[in-house]
Design a protein around this nucleic acid. Structure first.
Lengths: 344, 344
DNA sequence: ATGTCGTGCCCAATCGTTTTGGCAAGTGAG
DNA sequence: CTCACTTGCCAAAACGATTGGGCACGACAT
């Protein structure tokens, strides 16, 4: 079991000092190296398959080229994988690796785990939430550049990346308006979170923009699951005149809406158009007809968060400088559940 | 911005040498320390909030307390989060952190990323697949303890953790038999992967065990999505006599089965019992009635894989020794889609 | 011959730990 | 008083990289 080969091995093989090897491999400015020597060293390094020891380098440079990914539950929610993926790929582009860590929402555990991260000398931390919400940044993280992911802070000095809920709501409703709908119901969520308020606001803006008066009977709030969607749809579809389209706070609600529509003998999209939110492929593709929806930009959020972190660590000032609370648009994903309203 | 405090700071504050502090904090055997000194050092360490520098320690110990988690696409598939979670939590129990990395199935990228991991001196690698399959272990990983996760190798020397597909199939069909079903259809997958063969084998064993002759017309293979399930169900439910229960290779297929049943005027579970596989909560809870299914033990697989890795690194021999190809059972998750068959 | 300068390389210190092999002081026996 | 032994601690050498400050040598001018 041969020891991993180190810089000294290369130096010895090439007949120079470790210093010189380091200068060459790192292309240090202001150091004069004979072209021939450089060539020789580069070649021996390649032949020997030399790769620097990250720990040693990190120790010396006080940088680990590693960023911590702390999340409450993210690893367990379905679409969250794309956040991780986005972050990981963007990080990889810059030679960074992600140290994953799930707190399960337990503050005690969170404290311990963050300490573990800091011990590992992470260059920065992504503090991610499983759904868009407002959080406090743990005290421990003050000492290291931190970006909030799918979460934001009340302190405007803390950088964050979240979806633009308002614009997302607008996008959904505009799509319905575009197809000619004027009586549009909205099944909202009941929780007091940014998405609830934001999407409602977007719904209203899109209606206003189209010159449609809001009918309060067309907005209901329900628990965000299929049963909630079912109940809400039954209620909404009793209103007179009956709405020709429903905007669901979440795709899961739409599952219930489909069932309600089937029971009422309404065909989607001929009699009723439905649009969701989240773009959970399992649901959207599983329903028939396919559910048109608005996607949360998970991948992009992950990527942007890493980019922000990089900007932060680049700047000397941790915090006030280039920190920004970024909002990403939620794109429409058209499938087959939206059509023109039925002729009366 | 005060420098992080190191072991020397503690030593100075406590009036002893760094050596002594190290001995005390690491509870080194065979070193005699005065009880009073020990107390004093422990206290100053706590007061100062000392935490060892992981990089320095790793460099010295040649262990990074970090394990690499390499996956093809895992971060993007829905239930995969639980694999990560299981691995992460088990790792955390032993003070290990997970370095995440997604190859996207690109071998070139995979090679580069694995090199990155090795540079970081990971203590071991979890090589995970997004679905149970047979893989080759990349050459690069030969130099470090590796465990396959939701994948296995043809080389029996390579340890791995996978779900027990056969037993899972048996579990599903037994549950139907237990409720009195004797005509049980199976909608299988079309791909040539272990799950396809395993679950079919399980189906057969359960039938045999119950003394039911297999009717080839009751087994069909379809693409694993709602549309496939729909088509397959229409076909199966035409057989005479009509099956009273369907076992679906995947929950997604069940979505289509529900639709087909509704169209045929069959009520679930009164007229038709349905059982799925995967336990994708989004689907199982979203369907009405809730889908009884067999769960893939994602969390446990992640945890077991870490445990195996630990066993490997403990043993001196990388490979042949305690390496095992482990199969985990898939537990039944009962909801509301299975009942006794209708009286004829 | 002496001084000056550029070129090409290397020495040694450093990062923060762990660990080996001590050493000084105390204790008890002879 | 000397010797042997224990107790409690510490100095210094790793680990593998980076880097500031050289040093030796040859070329060229004076």
């Amino acid at each position: 079991m041969g020891r991993r080969i180190g810089i000294k091995d290369v130096a010895a093989a090439a007949g120079v000092s470790a210093t010189t090897v380091s200068h060459i491999l790192n292309e240090v400015e202001g150091k004069r190296i004979n072209a021939e020597t450089r060539q020789r060293v580069l070649e021996t390094a390649r032949e020997l398959g030399y790769a620097p020891n990250g720990l040693a380098r990190g120790l010396r440079l006080k940088r680990s080229n590693t960023i911590g990914f702390v999340s409450d539950q993210i690893a367990t929610t379905p679409h969250a994988g794309r956040i991780i993926l986005g972050a990981q790929e963007e990080a990889a582009k810059h030679g960074l690796l992600l140290l994953m860590l799930n707190t399960g929402g337990d503050p005690e555990l969170e404290r311990k785990e963050i300490d573990l991260l800091l011990q590992r000398q992470v260059d920065g931390v992504l503090y991610a939430s499983m759904y868009h919400r407002v959080v406090e940044v743990p005290e421990r993280l003050r000492s290291v550049p931190t970006v909030l992911l799918d979460a934001r802070s009340d302190d405007p000095g803390v950088p964050s990346v979240v979806p633009d809920e308002v614009l997302g709501g607008e996008t959904a409703v505009r799509e319905l308006v575009r197809h000619g709908h004027r009586r549009i119901g909205f099944i909202n969520n009941v929780d007091d979170i940014p998405a609830t308020h934001g999407r409602l606001e977007g719904y209203r803006r899109a209606l206003a923009e189209a010159g449609i008066a809001e009918d309060p009977r067309l907005v209901v709030a329900e628990t965000t699951d299929a049963v909630g969607g079912y109940r809400a749809a039954l209620r909404l579809l009793q209103a007179e005149p009956r709405p020709t389209a429903l905007f669901c706070f979440a795709d899961r609600l739409a599952m219930g809406v489909y069932r309600a529509a089937a029971e009422l003998g309404l065909s989607i999209p001929a009699d009723l158009s439905v649009i969701g939110f989240d773009n959970q492929e399992l649901i959207c593709d599983g329903l028939f007809p396919g559910l048109t929806t608005v996607a949360l930009p998970h991948y992009e959020m992950g990527a942007r968060a890493v980019a922000q972190l990089l900007a932060l660590t680049g700047a000397q000032d941790h915090g006030t400088g280039s920190a920004s609370q970024e909002m990403l648009p939620c794109p429409l994903v058209a499938r087959a559940s939206v059509a023109s309203p039925p002729r009366l």
